[in-house]
């Protein structure tokens, strides 16, 4: 008897939420797969934003200094949320799981694979963080291959001071919007770009960047893993290259 087609669990990256997969899920379901996404803790419906974010025009100094109400969100919470969804999906459908993470979602995919390797058919990183054992995501951000990254130039507060990677998706500053578009979705239409920004939050918890990857060859290492490189990824373009 043929084994059932795997179910996809799709994990989003920083500032966005599970709706980022809305065009991909129907394409997977059309081929007989189950595909589910979620809002990670601190994202989507559970995202908390600083008071200063609501005030327009933006008080730049207040926005740069107000502590993040999202700062306490931990990688452990996010890992637990995805483990729960994967286990629930496996139980309900009887299908093995293909776990997919995009961008910062790679941190969660990695931790989940270490936690429940036997439930996973494979893990997939899409332009995502993939750490060596013991490495923190902050080490990757500061890696030589990320020199000149556009993402850091979008930050409007010191992550260590406010506890978050803080950007302003509601900005009406043309230069800042162009920077965000170059960093994330230069190949999207203006409508899709605007729609993405409308769904983004401003504070990504900074603490997840300082959690060492606790992975082993015996667990994480035996789950087949795939990496999808996005060749026009603006995260790796320098500001000069986009000007």
């Amino acid at each position: 008897m043929p084994s059932p087609k795997p179910a996809f669990i799709l994990v989003h990256g920083a500032w966005v939420d599970g709706s980022i997969w809305q065009r991909v899920i129907p394409l997977l379901e059309a081929q007989g797969h189950v595909a589910r996404s979620l809002d990670l803790p601190g994202s989507g419906a559970s995202a908390k934003v600083p008071i200063a974010y609501h005030k327009r025009p933006l008080d730049v100094l207040a926005f740069a200094t107000e502590p993040s109400p999202n700062a306490a969100v931990s990688q452990e919470e996010r890992t637990r949320a995805v483990v729960a969804l994967a286990e629930q999906t496996a139980q309900e459908t009887g299908r093995p799981i293909v776990l997919v993470g995009q961008s910062l979602g790679g941190l969660t995919v990695t931790a989940v694979a270490e936690a429940i390797p036997d439930q996973l058919r494979s893990i997939v990183y899409i332009s995502a963080f993939l750490q060596s054992p013991g490495m923190m995501a902050i080490d990757l951000v500061q890696h030589a291959t990320m020199a000149g990254s556009l993402v850091a130039s979008m930050f409007l507060a010191d992550p260590q001071a406010v506890g978050a990677l803080r950007i302003d998706p509601r900005s009406d500053n043309a230069e800042y919007r162009a920077l965000m578009r170059s960093a994330f979705c230069a190949d999207a239409s203006e409508a899709d770009f605007s729609s993405t920004l409308a769904g983004e939050t401003c504070d990504e918890p900074a603490g997840v960047l300082t959690v060492p990857a606790r992975i082993t060859a015996e667990r994480f290492g035996r789950v087949p893993r795939h990496y999808i490189r996005c060749l026009e990824d603006g995260r790796f373009q320098s500001r000069a290259r986009t000007s």
Binding site: W21, V24, V100, V124, D187, A217, R222, H226, I228, R229
Partner: peptide
Amino acid sequence: ALGSQTHTHTLPASHFPFYSYSKPLAEIL
């Protein structure tokens, strides 16, 4: 470090391949 291989794939896409490359992305998945 892990003694196992990561299989790599490519898309001519931006950091968010969900819009212009949703179908090629789904095909890889």
